[in-house]
Simulated assay, not measured.
Amino acid sequence: MSVPALSQPNAGDTTAWHAEHWAIGNDIEVLPRIFEDHTNIAIMRRELDAPLLASVAAQCHVDRAWQWSWLGSPDAEMQADLLRRLPAPAEARPLVDDIQTLAEAMAYLFEADMIGIRLRLLDSAMCPRFHCDNLPVRLVTTYHGPGSEWLPEAALNRAGLGIPSADKPEIVADAAGIQHLQVGDLGLLKGSGWVGNEPRGLVHRSPALDSGQKRLLMTIDPA
């Protein structure tokens, strides 16, 4: 992956950040825009090809939810462990290859020797309340089912974040402004643990799932 030269925005220009704090594109070169001071989400739109969709479907045709996690280098040992743990290993190669590519890209982009990965088949919303993560950055992608939801600043009341209480306002200031990641999209979410981004971590939540609906979610954190 070739990382383009990044612009140097004015860190004090909060007006620009409130007006447009996201970067969305169809090419991988949109992802390094997460380094821009005013950007707290970078999204690469992508469609999964037929072999990958078939591989994903095979892992979802199970009776129970499952998960796999890894903390280490994105290497052959990681691939072997994932193949051992997936419920349908015979059909797993396209999914494993995609995860390997994304893990290597995250390690390269953030100059990380280790990455943390979680791959989970969910049958209920994991984090249904809007929140921001207390970590620097996370890659989120949904292989099956509805994608993560996030709020632009114009649709958000940050005073409502945190532990719910009767005197707190609603987090969502404009329900029509709720944004959705689609299947296959790569979302880089900047959290409140990113130095200089403490008061403005990306606010997001897990989507609601209908009865019987499943979601295959992967997150990657540079470690």
Rank of each mutant, 00 (worst) to 15 (best):
A57L: 11
A58I: 03
Q59S: 02
C60T: 12
C60E: 07
C60Q: 02
C60Y: 01
H61I: 03
H61W: 00
R64L: 03
W66Q: 06
W66K: 01
Q67W: 02
Q67G: 14
S69D: 14
S69E: 14
S69Y: 01
W70I: 07
L71I: 04
G72R: 02
S73H: 09
S73K: 12
S73M: 11
P74M: 09
P74K: 03
P74A: 15
D75I: 07
A76Y: 00
A76G: 05
E77S: 12
E77M: 04
E77H: 08
M78T: 03
M78K: 01
Q79D: 15
Q79S: 12
Q79F: 00
R85Y: 06
R85I: 02
P87F: 00
P87M: 02
P87T: 05
A88D: 14
P89V: 04
P89M: 05
A90P: 00
A90V: 06
E91C: 10
L95V: 08
L95S: 08
D97H: 09
D97L: 12
D97G: 08
D97A: 14
T101L: 12
T101P: 00
L102M: 13
L102W: 10
A103I: 04
E104A: 15
E104Q: 15
E104N: 14
A105M: 11
A107I: 04
Y108H: 14
Y108W: 08
L109Q: 07
L109W: 03
L109A: 05
E111R: 04
A112M: 11
A112P: 10
M114E: 15
I115Y: 06
I117Y: 03
I117V: 13
R118K: 13
R118P: 04
R118D: 15
R118I: 09
L119P: 08
R120L: 08
R120T: 15
L122Q: 12
L122F: 00
D123L: 00
S124W: 06
S124D: 15
A125T: 12
A125D: 13
A125S: 15
M126I: 10
M126Y: 05
P128W: 05
R129A: 12
F130K: 07
C132W: 12
